[in-house]
Design a protein around this nucleic acid. Structure first.
Lengths: 219, 219
DNA sequence: ACGTGTGAATTTCTTCACAGCC
DNA sequence: GGCTGTGAAGAAATTCACACGT
């Protein structure tokens, strides 16, 4: 009689954990990280109470969030900042470089190309594409704008998984579908549109208008 | 013996309701609004199921959210789109014009001045200020950049309640505190910083890096 | 028959409070 | 003494499911 061994790979295990951790918690990790990088300037260690006060979260929430991923703190002391930064970067998969494709080189697209905050954090705009012949071939920062029709080739050759979408709202859904078909797995969109994509594709909206409309409720 | 009448003003009532409605619900209203404005092109009526499918929310959630503010739908029919748009705009206080102060006219600030999506939605950048003498006096779109030292006067004269903050991260907290002291009640910040302000001040962060770091967790 | 509005049930998220370790 | 990690408690958000109006 044969014992049934269930083979569990590292990737499986990682995925199991991922689906177990609530997205609200994951969404707070980048904020913790940002705070820690600021604190690093003056401190080597931080406790959950102080970190919470800086960020506007409760100490208990911070401890519980972090405890989902391991025991990163020391009783009586708190958390070593450098260590915690490294752990968070590992959890978030940002201890590695990520290539980004920019789609749409209008005003917003150019502002993105100008912004240096990405590459300082290991996100690199590898290529930019547009459909406008007047823009194709032009150079912004280190990117020469390529033809959107070559998108698939560019994504495959550079193994790009993340796209920033800065096209007019009316084209956003169509272009997003193409991106997904070409292998993109995550989209940060600046288009004021609603994207309907398979659930395994991660989408984040950067939408100042929605933020403003949220705030005016309270004014 | 005198009957104790508790005087409740309209403003009081509005505030009571505001604190009762959870912020997560308020945060979804602008998204409903955006969807409805798109649907308006082809439909006059919509039901919670279809609206939910478009937005990726459950039908029950949409019905429950909307029911917090009134009975906007009709059994058997759904919601009249134009009517619901008007109601949501009223709830969100965006059936009126809002003046905005832009603080910081660097790359991001200029992109904001260029963006026409705000004024199309009754948000108007009334003034832009900076501390850099090279930039003060220059004109971008309809705004002549003014001296940041005149900020208080500008806010008061134009009765501005909302600011967009696009200054370097290291100045963000200090400038934000000045804004609050000068009468600003809501801040949409593009600076990769953590703002610590009184709880009655509404702050929204527009931070692509945090969005990217959130997504890479799943990649 | 269709679809809203809504109490009730369920699930998820947050806080509490304390044992245990530094 | 100080502070983490964590079960348990509590609060909040979401979904269910159906009465009722059109």
């Amino acid at each position: 009689m044969q014992v049934s061994l269930t083979e569990v790979t590292d990737a499986d295990r990682k995925n199991m954990i991922k689906t177990q951790i609530p997205d609200v918690i994951v969404g707070r990790l980048p904020r913790y990280l940002r705070a820690l990088k600021i604190l690093r300037e003056n401190h080597t260690t931080i406790n959950s109470k102080e970190l919470g006060e800086l960020l506007g979260f409760s100490a208990a929430q911070i401890r519980k969030d972090l405890s989902q991923f391991g025991e990163f703190g020391k009783q009586g002391t708190g958390y070593n900042i450098d260590f915690l930064i490294d752990r968070l970067q590992n959890i978030l998969n940002i201890n590695q470089d990520w290539g980004i494709l920019l789609v749409g080189v209008g005003k917003i697209g150019r502002a993105i190309l100008n912004y240096s905050g990405f590459s300082a954090n290991r996100f690199h705009v590898k290529a930019a594409v547009d459909s406008n012949p007047d823009v194709i071939g032009e150079q912004f920062e280190r990117c020469i704008v390529e033809d959107i029709r070559d998108m698939k080739k560019i994504i495959e050759e550079n193994q790009i998984k993340i796209a920033m979408l800065a096209v007019p709202a009316e084209n956003a859904q169509k272009v997003a579908e193409e991106l997904v078909a070409d292998g993109i797995r995550a989209i940060l969109t600046y288009a004021p549109a609603i994207l309907t994509l398979p659930p395994e594709i991660k989408v984040e909206y950067s939408d100042p208008l929605i933020s403003l409309q949220h705030m005016t409720y309270y004014l």
